[in-house]
Structure formats: C-alpha cells, structure tokens
Design a protein around this nucleic acid. Structure first.
Length: 633
RNA sequence: GGGGGCGUGGUGUAGCGGCCUAACAUAUUGCCCUGUCAAGGCAAAGAUCGCGGGUUCGAAUCCCGUCGCUCCCGCCA
C-alpha cells in the first residue's frame, strides 16, 4: 500500500451524518405518502401507511383486485377487497397501468403460500382502505413494466417514459452515486470544486467548437468549452492547488456510441505533483469508487498494471486495450524470416514486422470447409483494416495430427515447434499471422482482438480490466501537414529525461501523459503540464506554431505563466464512459438522462430548431444555406 | 463526407414478387372471475407495411431517391 500522506495531509472531512433527513410527515401537514413502496418490510406489519406511485400492473379478479404499485424505491403489492372497501375497489377497477394513485391502507404479512420471493417487498402487502386516482394516464407507447427492446425513435420521443423504466432509473441513480462519491472523496482530500465559464473563447486546436454569437459585440462569437483545460491551469497559477469540477464539455464532431456532442468530465488539476502522484491519487479514487458503487464487480488486477504505450501498440495494436483477455500479437519476425514463405521473408528483409496471435481453441475440430470459412471471415476483417491477407495455422487436436492452413508447409518442423513454444500454443489453437507496415499490423490486431474475444466468449461482464497506459510519445508526425502534432495537447510536459531530445529527435521524446483504460475504453487521460515558459516556447515551433500566433491564442496563459506558476498536472475522466462501464451498458446514451441522437438532435423536443428572423437580425446573422434547403421561420 | 444495418397494428416480431382480404405474441377495450403476482377465461377493435417515385399484369417484398434511428470509417482525447 502506498502513502498519499505527504500530499494530502490537510484532510477536511465535512460530515453530513448529522443532517436531519427531511420527512414531510414530521411537519404535521397533510401528506401524499408516508413511506416508499419499495421500503415496505415485515417490520412494518400492522402499520397504517399512505403510499403513492404508479400502477405497475393490475390483476383484477372481480371482487379482489391486486395492484403492483411502483415508485422510485421499488414495487409493492396492494390488495383491495370489494366487501371491506367498496369505494377503494371501485377506484382500483378504474385504474390502469401508469395511473398515478394514492393508497391508504394497513401493512400485513401475506397469507401463507402467497409470498413473492421475486420482490424485495414480497412478504408483505398493503390492504387498501382508500384509493384515490391522482392522475390518469394514456396507454404508454411501450412497456414500462417489462424490459424489452424498443425502437430508439420511440424511446427518445418519450424519453420521460423511457426514464421511468427501472433499468434507466438504476442507471441514472448510479450516475448520481458515482458523482456524489467523487465529490465527497475529493472534498475529503482538500479539493475545491470551481465552476468555469460555459461561454468562453474559441480555440483552433482539437475538435470543432460550438459557437455562440455575441449580441453585444456583433460579429464576434463565444465558443462552448471543449474542456476547461486552460482555466484549470490558470486556477493552479491562482494558487488553488487542488481543483476539480464535474464539467460539461462540448465538441462539435460526428457522434458515436461512446461520443455525445455534450458530455461530462471529472476535470482535475493539482499543484506540486509529479506523474506518479496523479496516477496514484486517481487509481485510489477509482478503486474506492468501484468498491462503493458496484461492489459486485471485480477489478482484474490491483494495483492497475502499467503498460508502456509502445508495448500496448505492439501487443494489442491499441493505446486503449481490453486486457480482460490476452490475444496478443507476438513478434515472430526472426522465425518467419527463416521460413520458406516469400511474403514473410521479403517483409522481414524490408524491416517490416511479422506477428503471430494465438487464438485458443479456435480451430478445435473444425472441418476443413468450416475452417476455411472462419479463416476467410477473419481475413476479410484484416483486409478491412488495411492488410493484404491473413495467414493462419490450425493446430490439430491429436498429438500426431497435421497442422492445417496454407502457410504450414513453409515452416520446418523445428521452426513450427519454436513458434508454438513462443506462443504457448496448445492443440486446437488457431494461429494468425500478420505482416505489413507496423501501423497496419497494429490496426489488424486491434480489429481482430475484440472480435475474437466475443467469438470465444472471453468478455466477462463482471470484470473490470483497468490499466494505465504511460510513456506516450510527446509528438506524433502529421504526414499531411509535414509537422509534429502534440499527442495529447500542447501543454503536456515531456518526460524530464527526454527534454534534450526536443532538439535532436522530437519523435523519440516521451510525454508525461497517462491514460486510464478500462475494458478497452479510455476512461481518463491527463498529463503533467509545462510550467516553464522557455520550455513552452520551444514546443510551439515544433508543432508549426510561430510565437506571434501562439501569443494571440494563448497569450493570456503565457502571460499568467510569468507570475509564479507551480509545477502542476491533472487528469480528466470521461464520466459518461465510467458510468456506462460500471452500469454494464454498451452505450453512454443509457446513462445520460437526455442524450442526443446520432444526428445531434433531441427527438423529443425537436432540437435543434430554426431561429426566428428577429433573433437572427438582432445577432446580425444572415443565413447562407445550400440550395434546396428551406429556411423555416 | 463515406460504408453497413433497421423502419410492418400501441409495442416486439413473422412474411421478403401472386397463396397477404398482411400472421403471431403482447398491449388495448368490453364481459366473467375473492389469493393473484408475465393472473386466467370469453369476445372485440386495431396496420393501405417510414415517405416519394419507378420496374412489373401484379410490390410490404425488387430498384432509385428521401427522411429517421443505429453501427463503423473519416473526424474526434
């Protein structure tokens, strides 16, 4: 166990245990409910209660009606007897699914043999004496009371009903718990949450900005922040030392399942830290978070393994590998170069890699035809990723069986044995060979791994495969622009020992960047920042920025950095992704209350929509739409 | 900007050139029913198959366009 004590001595724990829980009935006023449906337990037996919620289901047996009443806390059974409560029975028979009703009644144990173990409240029921229909409901366009796939259009159009479904309520509540846990934990470590502006300055770097026209200054625009990056560094200059924010960020790029135009980051910045401090702090937070909010999930390895960027690319072809399964690409250039297979021999001679991936049990006892079909499918994927082909060997199940596949005959027995030993190959394995430019081999590896893992059933949904990716290159070569691009952003500090490389071999310089990865998704990324103006000024020309334009765009930061800036670094978490992974959801839309569709619209409200001519006039904006487009008022 | 998938009663699906006057499940409506919990029984209503055009003797079905949703590449940390 490591110690953060030297960093986080002054722990101020605000304790909310003493805050009185607000309960309406203590005020003595009239109340619509005295207890939550989902909270009823045997110990409430005999109590007179008032419940209110939505009708989840109604089972009308004539003289006896059962209503499953649902609120945010769960479902309980209400029973209404025509003989003992005729008025209530009358109302109950008029009630329908999703009606909002209020029930007054007595809690009792259910008769012997009628308990429902499916429900947390299943040992008790409420015998209604009064039922009032607070609000009727139209028949909903889809089932609230049962998990079923629903067309996205319908879900989004009726998002308020979609969010009423228990699964969505669980997701949204989980999101709340994640954010609440983070806030409390960081607060306890002496962090201060500071809000930064939503209306800010456009930046040419990174993603496309959302622009907001300024009415007071015609022709000028605000931009919505892509992240609070600059401001959080200025807060370090301002001496706050430990800042965080649950920050909304905006990027006007095309959407994906993991990408929304507005999304939420945990933004964090700390002064007087080095890379190791930020990594350990965030890892500690993440581990505590997982244990607190999803104790049923298992973290694969603690402390999180550290993987060098270079290794991640060579092994997994990705800087955000899913490490829950191995399926790694192994360098076999030395063996393949000795083989009789011309493609490998030539590629090795040209210095191109040859990699092999062992796919456990994939060949099994597949028939020759089936094996060729499987191999052809994989080859198609490899080709889609840029490869020219995909060679394979299928290992037989029997000791003395023949290796199948077109390249086996080009390897001698000794070469094959050496190959199998290096890969740890077992009978029935399929071995895939990839050889091309190293970028292509990476792309193929990255394309095949998740596909194969799915095929082989290696994706354990209860497992959280966290790791850190470190030692990113400081720059990546931009072929189009013939210059270096910052691999993270232009304030990233190079690794101290690599600073001399900036003059001699910038491509070899490593940045102080670190990414936290989980199950194949980048969940957080950050770096130690440059706090030395001379070093910063060295970076600009390398990335094709002359000092004049740099001053124009970043002058305020450069100037601030002349007033005593502490060494600092930080990180930003993709909260939507973190919550989606913890919730076991494949898509961040499932953990955002009101997300946008892939075309950036809100189907429910019809957002975005046209502006009134008067609004445009006030902003001095004239539309210049492509032809055939109608301008609506 | 490019490629793939989907669009059929309220919902989820089937049908994929004529047997479709569009099937099934569920939901809905009415009646019956006092221990149900995916309640049950009986009955009824409900879709011109996203939209527009074309091919054909004939289109839910084939083709083109278009709209929407979705997945991926480009883009984006």
């Amino acid at each position: 166990m490591f110690c953060l004590g030297h960093l986080f001595l002054c722990t101020i724990m605000l304790c909310f245990d003493t805050v009185e829980i607000f309960t309406p009935h203590r005020s003595g006023q009239a109340m619509l409910k005295t207890i939550q449906c989902g909270e009823l337990r045997p110990e409430h037996s005999g109590q007179e209660v008032t419940l209110a919620g939505w009708v989840n289901r109604r089972r009308d047996q004539g003289g006896l009606i059962f209503i499953d009443l649902r609120d945010r806390w769960g479902i309980c059974q209400v029973v209404v007897d025509q003989e003992t409560a005729p008025d209530a029975h009358n109302h109950a028979s008029n009630a329908r699914n999703e009606y909002v009703i209020q029930v007054v009644g007595k809690v009792r144990m259910r008769p012997d043999g009628t308990s429902n173990p499916e429900l947390a409240t299943g040992d008790v029921e409420v015998v209604a004496s009064e039922i009032e229909i607070l609000n009727a409901a139209k028949t909903p366009p889809f089932y609230i009371n049962k998990e079923d796939s629903i067309d996205e259009v319908v879900r989004m159009k009726y998002r308020y009903l979609d969010l009423r479904r228990p699964k969505m309520q669980r997701n949204i509540v989980l999101r709340h718990r994640v954010i609440k846990f983070i806030r409390d934990w960081l607060d306890a470590q002496g962090f201060v949450e500071v809000e930064t502006p939503i209306l800010f300055k456009t930046t040419p770097e990174g993603a496309r900005d959302f622009l907001v026209p300024s009415r007071l200054q015609p022709g000028k625009f605000y931009a919505l922040p892509q992240s609070p990056q600059q401001l959080k560094q200025l807060l370090m200059v301002a001496g706050y030392e430990r800042y965080f924010q649950i920050a909304r960020c905006f990027r006007d790029e095309d959407l994906r399942g993991q990408r929304q135009p507005e999304f939420t980051q945990l933004d964090m910045e700390i002064s007087f830290v080095e890379r190791e401090d930020v990594i350990q702090l965030n890892e500690t937070l993440m581990r505590a978070l997982v244990k607190a909010v999803v104790p049923e999930k298992r973290i694969m390895e603690e402390p999180f393994p550290r993987i060098l960027y270079q290794d991640a690319m060579e092994w997994y072809g990705s800087d955000k590998p899913d490490i829950r399964y191995d399926l790694r690409a192994v360098d076999v250039a030395d063996l393949a170069g000795q083989s009789g297979f011309a493609v490998f021999v030539n590629n090795v001679a040209e210095g191109k890699p040859v990699k092999a991936m062992r796919v456990p049990g994939m060949a099994g006892n597949l028939s020759g035809t089936r094996l060729r079909t499987v191999a052809a499918e994989l080859e198609d994927m490899a080709k889609a990723a840029g490869a020219k082909g995909l060679a394979y060997m299928a290992l037989p199940l029997e000791e003395d069986g023949e290796v199948r596949g077109p390249v086996g005959k080009f390897f001698t027995v000794d070469q094959k044995l050496a190959l199998f030993e290096r890969l740890g190959a077992q009978p029935g394995d399929l071995i895939l060979f990839m050889s091309d430019r190293r970028e292509v081999v990476w792309a193929v590896t990255d394309a095949l791994r998740p596909h194969l893992a799915k095929e082989l059933g290696l994706l354990d949904p209860t497992l959280l495969g966290y790791c850190w990716i470190v030692d990113f290159p400081e720059f990546l070569w931009n072929e189009d622009e013939q210059r270096w691009d910052p691999s993270q952003h232009l304030f990233t500090m190079p690794m101290p020992e690599d600073i001399p490389l900036l003059d001699t071999d910038p491509g070899a310089a490593r940045g102080s960047q670190y990414d936290m990865v989980c199950n194949g998704f980048e969940v957080a990324g950050g770096s130690i920042r440059i706090h030395d103006r001379a070093l910063q000024e060295k970076i600009f020309p390398l990335i094709g920025q002359d000092m004049d334009s740099a001053r124009e765009q970043f002058g305020h930061i450069l100037e601030a950095f002349e007033y005593g800036v502490p060494p600092h670094g930080g990180i930003a978490w993709g909260i939507d992704r973190v919550v989606a992974i913890l919730a076991g959801e494949p898509n961040i839309r499932e953990v955002i209350a009101f997300p946008k569709s892939q075309t950036g619209s809100d189907v429910m409200s019809g957002t975005p929509s046209s502006a009134l001519p008067a609004q445009l006039e006030e902003l001095h904006i004239k539309l210049d739409l492509p032809e055939e487009e109608e301008i609506e008022a």
